[in-house]
Every structure is written in structure tokens, then in C-alpha cells.
């Protein structure tokens, strides 16, 4: 018998792009004004006037069943709980950014502008759940139930049921069911996920296995040293170029501001 696992179901056909979930996440987790743990994925306005379509969906950490970030983290800052939540401990993080490169979903959000940079990402509002509240902040506040929260099995079953009941409304694809070996966040959508700007991941097996093979060759100490060295090199180079910072900032701004373009 496996432990109870949490899950999200996010329905792009219901999302109205109001961003209550984004604000709720920032308030609940005291996320700084420059960073975010949650974005809006957006098709943009598609078509020609007056035959238009527009879909959006909130997007955050997928909480993979076999998370690549956890396997890539050399210091155990990223951990997976029994309930499926992938947590992050900033006291352990050395800022090596391996998780960023390991994540096939482009989720860990690196605080490039900080002297000692850490990451920020969704943790299912674990402290909120521990206080006895029923749902993470984003799911609790969503006025259209575009974000729903429950057990992983329930959410997956609900996703399949909706597609089955309304085949005209959704594409036949539960994003997260097989991607990267399966996740705890499921999406359903009226349009293919590439159109929403989701990363395309063909793999049905997590890249975590590959990461483990790599990290298990060396000792954790060597890995840590390498990581520290990389960070040092990065910090030394950053003020001169600032290129990555600019790229990342642009990238993330794009994420939060994509809808704004439309």
C-alpha cells in the first residue's frame, strides 16, 4: 500500500487568467516582488478577427513522481516527501543551479539578482496544509475551479473523466500523466499543450535515473566541490556579462507577462 499522494488538476478550459492564484501564492509564501513560483501559460490570441481563440493556464512545479531535480541536487536541499511533495530547503542549498538544468519543466526559479542565489518553487503550500487548511493557496482561491486539489489518484481520475465526458472540449491528453515518468500535477486543455507554451517532453521515463547514474559515479564531496566551484565561477563572471541574468529575467518576465502582450 503506497502512502497518500497529493495532486493538482489544472483545467485550461476553465482558467480566466485573472491571476488570483499568482497573487495568492505570493502572499501565502511571502515571495519577493521580483520572483514568482507560479506563471500563466498562454496561447496568445489565436486566429484572425473575428474567429479568435485564447486559452491560459496557471503553471507551477509539477512535483514529479521521480523528480529529476531531487536526483540532481548534490546536497539534499530538494527532497521528495512520501505524499509526493517536492520540498526545498534553502538552508542546505548551495546555489549550484543543477536542479534548474535537470528540471524538464523549467520550474526551479533562480534568484539571479541575489548575492547568494537560491531558488524558489512551489511546495504545495506545505506549511498551509500542515496548519490544517484544506488546499494550497492557489487552488483555494480560484473562482472558476480551474485549479483543483486532492489526492493524486482522484485528480487523475477526474482529468480522464472530463476528457471522456466532453471529448469536444479537450484534447485527449492528460499532461503530467506520463511526462517525465509521471507527475503530481495534471493539466487538461482544449488545445495541444505546445500551443500553451508547455515544454515538450517525449520521455516517459524520468531523467532522474540518468542523473543518479552521473552523481553516483563521483562522491558527493567531489560533486559539491564542483558545484561550489561552478558557483564561484558564475559569481565571478556575472558582474561582467550579466548575460544569463538578463536572459533569465527576460524569460521569466515573458512567463508572467505573456498574457499582457495580448
Amino acid at each position: 500500500m503506497t502512502a497518500h499522494k497529493y495532486g493538482f488538476l489544472i483545467d485550461a478550459s476553465r482558467c480566466i487568467d485573472c491571476r488570483a492564484c499568482l497573487v495568492a501564492c505570493s502572499a501565502e509564501n511571502n515571495v519577493s516582488m521580483k520572483h514568482t513560483r507560479i506563471w500563466i501559460k498562454d496561447t496568445g490570441i489565436v486566429g484572425e478577427f473575428p474567429d479568435l481563440k485564447h486559452y491560459t493556464a496557471p503553471y507551477h512545479c509539477m512535483h514529479c513522481t521521480d523528480p529529476a531535480c531531487v536526483s540532481a541536487c548534490t546536497v539534499g536541499a530538494l527532497q521528495q516527501n512520501e505524499d509526493g511533495i517536492v520540498t526545498y530547503d534553502n538552508d542546505r542549498c548551495i546555489g549550484c543551479r543543477y536542479c534548474m538544468y535537470a528540471c524538464p519543466f523549467e520550474v526551479p526559479y533562480f534568484e539571479w539578482d541575489k548575492q547568494f542565489a537560491l531558488i524558489t518553487k512551489c511546495d504545495f503550500c506545505i506549511s498551509r496544509l500542515e496548519e490544517g487548511q484544506a488546499e494550497p493557496a492557489c487552488a483555494a482561491t480560484c473562482p472558476t475551479d480551474a485549479i483543483q486539489f486532492g489526492s493524486r489518484e482522484e485528480m487523475l481520475a477526474l482529468a480522464r473523466e472530463r476528457i471522456k465526458n466532453e471529448p469536444g472540449r479537450y484534447v485527449d491528453h492528460v499532461f503530467g500523466e506520463h511526462e517525465n515518468g509521471g507527475t503530481s500535477t495534471f493539466f487538461i486543455s482544449p488545445v495541444p499543450f505546445e500551443q500553451l507554451g508547455f515544454p515538450t517532453t517525449e520521455r516517459t521515463e524520468s531523467s532522474a535515473r540518468f542523473n543518479r547514474e552521473v552523481t553516483e559515479i563521483g562522491t558527493p564531496i567531489i560533486a559539491s566541490a564542483v558545484a561550489l566551484g561552478m558557483t564561484g565561477i558564475y559569481l565571478a563572471l556575472k558582474p561582467k556579462t550579466g548575460k544569463h541574468a538578463a536572459e533569465k529575467t527576460e524569460h521569466t518576465e515573458e512567463k508572467t507577462a505573456q498574457a499582457q502582450e495580448e
Binding site: 485573472c18 491571476r19 488570483a20 499568482l22 497573487v23 495568492a24 502572499a27 501565502e28 511571502n30 487548511q133 493557496a137 483555494a140 482561491t141 480560484c142 473562482p143
Partner: peptide
């Protein structure tokens, strides 16, 4: 005040708040 949530017992929120309601503390 560190967080605002919709009151499930209120007919105008039914447990939800819009982005403005969520941002009320600011």
C-alpha cells in the same frame, strides 16, 4: 495580517477571492 482567504460561509466569496481580494493586505 499575513494572508487573506475567501470565507466559505459568505455568499459573495464562497471560499474564493479574486486577485484584488488576495492582494488586499498590500
Amino acid at each position: 495580517v499575513v494572508k487573506l482567504d475567501g470565507n466559505p460561509e459568505h455568499p459573495h466569496s464562497k471560499g474564493n477571492l479574486c486577485p484584488r481580494g488576495q492582494a488586499g493586505l498590500m
